[in-house]
Nucleic acid binder design. Sequence first.
DNA 1: GCCGTTTTCGGCCCGACTGTTTTCAGTCG
Length: 574
Amino acid sequence: MPVHNADIAAVFEEIADLLEIEGGDPFRIRAYRNGARALANLGQEAAALVAQGADLTELPGIGERLAEKIQEIVKTGHCKALDKMRRAMPSGITELLHVPGLGPKRVGTLYHELDIHTLEQLHRAVRDHRVQTLPGFGAKTEEKIESFLAQYKTDTQRLKLAAAAPYAESLAAFLRDVKGVVEVTIAGSYRRCKETVGDLDILVAARAGAAVMQRLDAYDEVKNVVAQGTTRATVMLRSGLQVDVRVVRPESYGAALHYFTGSRAHNIAVRRLAQKKGLKINEYGVFKGDKRVAGETEESVFESVDLPWIAPELRENQGEIEAAKRGVLPQLIELSDLKGDLHAHTNATDGHNTLKEMAEAAIRAGLSYMAITEHSKHLRMAHGLDSRRLLKQMDAIDQLNERLEGITVLKGIEVDILDDGGLDLPDDLLGRLDVVIGAVHSQFHLSRAKQTARILKAMDHPHFSILAHPSGRLLQERDPYDVDMEKIIRHARVRGCFLEVNAHPERLDLNDSHCRMAKEEGVLLVVDSDAHSTLDFGNLRFGIGQARRGWLTREDVLNTRSLKEVRKLLRATM
DNA sequence: GCCGTTTTCGGCCCGACTGTTTTCAGTCG
């Protein structure tokens, strides 16, 4: 049984949770959480490092003790320390911590006073009104727990970034219209372009006395108000999305924006820098003693700790602060850098629009070239193209290019990678195309070794140029298939082919850490819409967000180049 | 439990809101 980083991280999180309920040293607890986060974001398997005999204490946040535990978990699949804790306290108890209003202290009370250690037991106790009698609990707390448990099953999902966008942007626009409001920004994980968002953090700069909170109550989509003070409020929208609104004075806007953009790990790291310089950073500004020395802009906050401004997408405490110190932050790619899109479908297969409509939409999206890349025949449900139909489409593209100004349409295919690693169309036909994208659409459950070998073999095909949605995941629906992505990335470098950053909101595939790995390996990525309709070119912004989270610059992305250069690089793969 | 350009010991980010209290602990972000 291979042990993955997430498994080890889960052990550390559970230890931290149990320590918290026991009332353990908060800093020790934090150390376990830091260790868990470090592992989750490592970008390479800790098990592989152990196998190489690497010194794990070199990793930030991992010291002697955690290194020992990682080794133990990798080698035995168990952690004795956790096993021992579980004997003292039921492990399921940690799920109680996810109930809003319940922290370690109250969970501890529930356990010691009423022997409650599952959600089911909690639900029963709440219904019998036994909880409100406990010290530190009351009728309101009990009510809150009950209403949470009642809808727990249906209501815990995070929203995909693209799904949250319309809610976020219309609420922000509403707040911008409130009298006295100077500025509104959707901060939090939304601003950092995370793949999914659990809630929205909306920051408002307003002059004194602006009635932002009262206006918020009048917003159509607000279902109920969870908490409300003078400077912050939490509301639930009808859609089930939780929104935290925070109001600050304009002179604090930069500090508040930094604070509410996060991530928490990044903020902590920046505040530690400030602390070392004898400064204090909070959401109102940067302070030396009682004197505010910065905070009106984000730039001023970073400047106070001798750093240049760091783009929100990088703020994960994953090396961005060190890079900023050394002056080597990447100049991140922007949407306007994209010159073309190399992955789109028409109604010849499972798209909704004609060839001409798609080309015209690409022009409107500001692109100067695009590739039509239909599915191939193996993908029956998408009515994939066989040789005859592909030839027909190639002719149609030639004719369109003669008539249409402002864009060049390339001839391509999203060819199925067959079970044995072969490609789903004849070599001579693939050789006549401008771009061959290979994709896995079947046999997701193969073993890691087989799946990896299958994809590597496909990449070795003489006409293969781009690997589409390399992990095959669908956000919140289908896990990535088990594959050795490091090996695929290295192979892409050797073969000189490219990996896709699929901008479809349900894919966003590659993910951020694999983007970064590919960049470091010197593999070019392709940010593609995978458009199935004329509207889908709008999704490119989400692909760019993902690329930015992966530290990609314009130079790291193939389709920021001119058509001439792209043709040259594509030919080199074929 | 981690970490070090003041430290191998003594620090470890900071403030708002709620509910249960009767001045504040717990939770949350």
